[in-house]
Design a protein around this nucleic acid. Structure first.
Lengths: 182, 182
DNA sequence: TATTGCAGCGCAATCCGTTGAATAAGTAGT
DNA sequence: ACTACTTATTCAACGGATTGCGCTGCAATA
């Protein structure tokens, strides 16, 4: 349960509303941890109860009021504490891979079709990450270096996925040849 | 919610007890979907209520009785239905990566320490997967091809991770040089 | 002999996450 | 004029997942 900590990480740099955070989750941090806006609002509520964040009401004209959250001392303490203890390895839950594992049931053509859909998604992500990495101006600043490394992680991940997809294609083709020649 | 389908995939090949399944989740399928024994027993119960699996009681001497589950027609239908509709892309939730993203807070040495711990884990997995891949005898059988592809996915993933770790090391070293020379 | 580990199953409580919807006012497009 | 999107937050309901606990009994080890 480190949605909490992901939020605290974001709040470190700047005061932000739930809405702001949700947008950032959709981009930057979403690369390593994703969450919907409902989850974020809920978690902000809990963090507030535990005095790890506080907010001020900002009335706006035209737009609805907003709550600008900032991290407190307790919040920072909690974050530091969390950073110190080892992180559990991420648990893997990949539905598409379950399909591959049970692939002998479906026919190869439908697998290939879905493979291409997934590959499109990965290619899209790859482009996004590469764009963002290119736009990082000063790579030597502390903050940017870590953002850069995070992006690199995403890039290498997508690339590995796409390479795997290439292997799948050629294996399935090989298989086709075998069966038609028998 | 495709714990259900992962179980059905496993039950396709052989009758198995909850305990057996839990062990398989810890190995083979665990590579793409992990689950604890509690979750598995619970899900087996639900699957049974929906007549997607049935079981027979096996009394054992010494050991407690066990329930050997097998898939039913309804179960197979459900599995086929599920295979046909597109899978949602996996959501990413990597606590260690959240730490990296907020890395500017911790000192580089503690990051490196945890990096090495995680790297050990990845190397271990890599070896396991490579061993399993080597042991697949007849790569041309339908079933083994898909197992092979699943393993390849895991292998490429671990390798990508380890390459990334190499990048992190050199970036952090570079950074150290910069700060000491200033 | 005490402890640990493995085989085997289960319940209860709680927490996390997802889905869907409601509200409300401005702005941009056809 | 109508539609759709953006900003901004919240609630309700459900189901999935996790954590912690409980049971039995054999085998091996220290």
């Amino acid at each position: 349960m480190s949605l909490r900590h992901a939020i605290l990480v974001l709040l470190q740099d700047q005061e932000a509303s739930g809405y702001d955070l949700a947008r950032e989750f959709a981009n930057s941090i979403g690369l390593v941890w994703n969450a919907t806006h409902q989850q974020i609002y809920l978690e902000l509520g809990k963090l507030n109860e535990k005095d790890m964040v506080k907010f001020r009401h900002i009335p706006q004209d035209g737009k609805p009021d907003k709550k600008m959250y900032r991290i407190t001392e307790e919040g920072r303490d909690e974050l530091i504490r969390w950073l110190r203890k080892p992180a559990a390895p991420p648990r893997i839950r990949d539905a598409f891979m379950v399909k591959i594992a049970g692939g002998a049931l479906s026919d190869p053509s439908s697998i290939l079709r879905e493979l291409e859909d997934q590959a499109d998604l990965r290619r899209e992500r790859l482009n996004t990450f590469e764009d963002l990495a290119r736009k990082l101006d000063d790579r030597d600043s502390d903050k940017n270096m870590y953002t850069y490394l995070t992006l690199r992680r995403g890039i290498l991940d997508q690339q590995a996925w796409l390479n795997w997809a290439e292997e799948v294609r050629s294996e399935l083709r090989r298989r086709e040849d075998l069966t038609t020649s028998v």
